[in-house]
Design a protein around this nucleic acid. Sequence first.
DNA 1: ACCCACCTGCAACCTATGGTTGCGCATGGT
DNA 2: ACCATGCGCAACCATAGGTTGCAGGTGGGT
Lengths: 118, 118
Amino acid sequence: MIRHDDESDELWAAVADPIRRRLLDLLLTDGEATATTLAAGLPVTRQAVAKHLAVLERVHLVEGRRHGREVRYGVRPERLDAATRSMALVAARWDERLATIKQLAEDVSGEAGEPRGD
Amino acid sequence: MIRHDDESDELWAAVADPIRRRLLDLLLTDGEATATTLAAGLPVTRQAVAKHLAVLERVHLVEGRRHGREVRYGVRPERLDAATRSMALVAARWDERLATIKQLAEDVSGEAGEPRGD
DNA sequence: ACCCACCTGCAACCTATGGTTGCGCATGGT
DNA sequence: ACCATGCGCAACCATAGGTTGCAGGTGGGT
């Protein structure tokens, strides 16, 4: 059986939102940025971005630090790595299953004469 | 620049939900199943499952066919494959970026030569 | 043929989440 | 000291996921 950690689900949920994926992209590109600057490059308001950053920070995918009156956010590489691993794992499992199914389908059509293959 | 197809976002959204991932797992394992039988193995009601199946069917990740009074659902391998590809792509891009960042960090500390740690 | 059992489908309703606007507050620069 | 800028909070709205309840169609047993 496959372990479905809360950990994984948490990361999935965080990464599921397109805006949050864009935020991670932007943070990876720019290094550090504030909610205000990030919002400038996105189709949502600063407040929406702030909420998303809060979500990402809750699962430790990003971290915000105060610099005077602004809060600069940066991505936590280890966590993001964990997220990509989790995604890759699910993808791999499905790929595997799909391969098996495809194989079975081919076997069936190949050995169609033999209804002996349970 | 990376193409953010609506297609991809659609699949992401569909696959983002844990219940829907479980549904896909179950369908991959069992081949075909009805909303009722699927609900039996999940912590939600039949109606919730039906809604999820509707979402999955809308993006063609599964297909339902009527057999008398029941509707049997099966996964569409090609679409699921597309979904895994999309996920793998995002994961790969992030991995790449993370690797670059890590590399930069090492270069900096390497060429610093000077333990001028700030 | 009839009735019952079962599965599906629809509607109403609740809650959480993502989004917006508006406002108050702190901080930094002039 | 003042003003501009960036943040945080609250109210409010829409949509998604979940539930319950009920109507409808289909298959099977008597």
